[in-house]
Nucleic acid binder design. Structure first.
Lengths: 280, 280
DNA sequence: GGGGTGCCATAATGAATCCTTATGGCGAAG
DNA sequence: CTTCGCCATAAGGATTCATTATGGCACCCC
């Protein structure tokens, strides 16, 4: 069997190329210059090709050396990651209650990434209506809830303000009177705020469609049944129209995260909360 | 400095996990069982955690072992790739003439991948009209041309048949008479074949739009100006309608590759031709 | 032109490593 | 109870690999 590459030799190689000198690389790695020289010769023996041009002014990589370099750097990076992360994965269970607008966003992806880093842990993301979410929280099924502040089942640990924007289907005439709107059927606090903004702007409206799911709302908007107030990241590209001056200005929504008190000190819940805080 | 992982130790680990036995792994690696046992202990020393459950019936990975396994496999894979590919990259230049339909397809991506594997080589992909492509081929600027057989500037080395399909914009009524069609303005041999198929089906038609670029054709179809006969992979999802029974059946197109004779034996051109053959 | 500096390569040496053989302990199967 | 197949350890010795010592080369400065 052919000899394996050696990570220590790859490290010597990468260090020498970066330093432009075997002597400086040796110094940096806490070894003697002849030791590095011999290691690099051994690496060239394994690869079967010269990897370095050597001269009294130092070393430069050969063409083969340039080809090996990205592999070497990748292997060193994976090796370091393997050492720091193996055996340090979190375990346990964490239930997260998210407003559906948020569940459809990249927050879910961030949580999926977190779950992938900690295969011993289970994350459960739930999008429930007000009463069901409150019950899930009170019974401990969800440990974190991120929702509009008036809708969360306890005092928020932190809050953040997010803008809303109008979602408008193609072929939709925004001057239509009364203005058809598409709404979430669940009672969310900003539905009221949006309708009040319409009233204040003197713009009459009618409910053209209601759905309890974001997909339903998006389908209705897409079909041109009306306009909807959504978070910007949930809009399909064709819905982000620019002729919204005819529509009332939308309020911001204040989101808050509530955490089930018994989870204090739980490292998994800590990690999930940090990820949500970072991504929101 | 902490010790580095060692690729040989990772290989021992992966082999033992897969075999479910240190003895069988040793045999597979051409070493003795105590040697493997010691190597795995050394690996556990470097990682700082037990990686294997050992029993008289063999070994199974611990939780940390399961976490390390994907890293180990990735490192082994990269290492093998580094050894086989370093110093074997091709150099030189190769010009490829492609029909624009093909240039827009994953063939270009395949050629980009090839170029990435051989940074010392340059690939040039050209989409030119009939006369310009012939001139580029005759002067040796392009060494390979992949196009419809009647349009290629020499006898094909190999040919392949590919289907066409109707691209239909939304809101487009396919029963419209005469049927508006969108065409490539360049003379391609299947434009004639498509129009002849229409005549044979007794379907009258009119040219609604012409463009010399696929993007222009797609934009016209998308805007509902007419239908176009394209390769299936170039259709946007919304254009792949199912009510094409009202439209004439489309002919297949026969593509062929012609190769500039002086490039015989050129390894880069060999590799490019192989890639095209594989991906078409 | 000579001396000094900094680079890389090789030789010799010896400590450390690591594979082998020999052997022991354990659990399961017959 | 015996046999088999597994893993672990001990001991020995061949091999490896880092060190020190030294040499050659190119370049720079005086």
């Amino acid at each position: 069997m052919a000899k394996d590459l050696e990570i220590a030799l790859l490290r010597a190689f990468v260090t020498a190329v970066r330093a432009g000198s075997i002597s400086r690389a040796a110094s940096g790695l806490g070894q003697t210059q002849p030791a590095l020289s011999q290691q690099l010769r051994r690496l060239e023996g394994v690869v079967g090709r010269p990897l370095l041009h050597r001269s009294p002014s130092g070393v430069t990589p050969t063409r083969a050396g340039e080809e090996l370099l990205p592999y070497a750097e990748r292997i060193l990076s994976l090796s370091a990651q393997a050492l720091t992360e193996t055996g340090r994965a979190l375990t346990g269970h964490c239930g997260v209650g998210l407003l559906e607008d948020l569940a459809a966003s990249r927050l879910s992806q961030a949580l999926a990434d977190l779950a992938r880093l900690h295969p011993g842990a289970t994350l459960e993301v739930l999008s429930l209506s007000g009463a069901a979410m409150r019950e899930a929280y009170d019974t401990g099924r969800v440990q974190l809830v991120l929702d509009a502040v008036p809708d969360i089942p306890g005092p928020p640990r932190w809050t953040v303000r997010r803008p809303l924007t109008w979602a408008i289907g193609q072929e939709m005439d925004v001057a239509t009177d009364p203005l058809p709107v598409v709404l979430f059927s669940s009672t969310c606090s900003w539905r009221t705020a949006v309708l009040e903004a319409m009233e204040r702007a003197g713009r009459s409206w009618r409910v053209a469609f209601e759905s309890n799911s974001l997909i339903g709302v998006l389908a209705a908007v897409r079909a041109g049944l009306g306009v909807a107030a959504l978070m910007p990241e949930n809009l399909e590209p064709a819905m982000a129209r620019h002729d919204t001056a005819a529509l009332p200005a939308l309020p911001e929504v204040e989101l808050g995260l509530v955490r089930h008190p018994p989870t204090q000190g739980d490292p998994l819940v800590d990690a999930v909360e940090s990820a949500l805080r970072r991504m929101i």
